[in-house]
C-alpha cells in the first residue's frame, strides 16, 4: 500500500516539475527575469539560475515519473520545493509584490500578495509528497525496480526464479 501511495506521490510531484519546467523552457529570458524579481540572489548568478532552473525541473520531474534513482530525485525535489517556499516567504516578508514565476511569467505584479499563502500551501503539500517518497524509497512501477533488482545468479541461488519486491 505504501509503495502504491509512493507511486502516486512520485507521479504528482514529477508531473508538476515537468509542467513547471516545460512552460518556462520556450522563454529563458523571462525565466531569468522571474528569478531576478525575487531580489535574493547576487545579480551575477541570476542569469545562470534562470537558465538552469527549467532544465533541472524537467530532469527531476522525468526521473520522478519514471522512478529512476527515486530516493535521490525525491531529495532534490524536496530541497527545491523548500527553496521556493523560502523564496516566496522572503518576498512576502519583504513586502515585494511579484508573480512567483512558478509556471512561467514572473516579475512585478501589483496584485501578487494575495497569491502568496496559496502558493506556499501548494509548495508545502508538494514538499511533503517529496519527503514521503524519500522515506519509503521503494515505490511501485519504478524503473529502479528493473535497474537495481538482484542479479540473476543471486536470485537463483537465494530466492529461486520468482522475486517480488
Amino acid at each position: 500500500m505504501k509503495e502504491w501511495f509512493g507511486l502516486v506521490a512520485r507521479l504528482v510531484t514529477g508531473v508538476v516539475w515537468i509542467v513547471a519546467g516545460a512552460v518556462k523552457l520556450p522563454d529563458p529570458a523571462s525565466s531569468v527575469q522571474a528569478v531576478r524579481a525575487y531580489q535574493l540572489l547576487p545579480s551575477a548568478i541570476v542569469p545562470t539560475v534562470g537558465q538552469l532552473l527549467p532544465v533541472v525541473e524537467i530532469v527531476v520531474g522525468v526521473t520522478l515519473v519514471l522512478g529512476i534513482l527515486t530516493r535521490g530525485a525525491a531529495v532534490v525535489s524536496a530541497l527545491m520545493y523548500l527553496a521556493f517556499i523560502v523564496g516566496i516567504g522572503s518576498v512576502w516578508a519583504r513586502g515585494l509584490t511579484i508573480d512567483c514565476g512558478c509556471f512561467g511569467g514572473g516579475g512585478y505584479d501589483p496584485n501578487a500578495a494575495s497569491q502568496y499563502p496559496w502558493e506556499i500551501a501548494r509548495d508545502v503539500a508538494l514538499l511533503l509528497l517529496s519527503v514521503y517518497v524519500v522515506v519509503v524509497g521503494r515505490t511501485r512501477l519504478a524503473l529502479d525496480n528493473v535497474l537495481f533488482r538482484a542479479t540473476p545468479q543471486l536470485k537463483d541461488s537465494e530466492h529461486g526464479e520468482q522475486v517480488s519486491p
Binding site: P28, A29, V32, P47, V59
Partner: peptide, 27 residues
Amino acid sequence: MIGGVVLAMLVIVAGGFLINRARDTSA
C-alpha cells in the same frame, strides 16, 4: 548503474543549460 545514471542526468542538464543560455535574449 547509479554513477552512469547520475552522469547521464548531469550531461542532459549541462546540455540543456547551454542551449538555454544561448537562447536567453535578456542581455
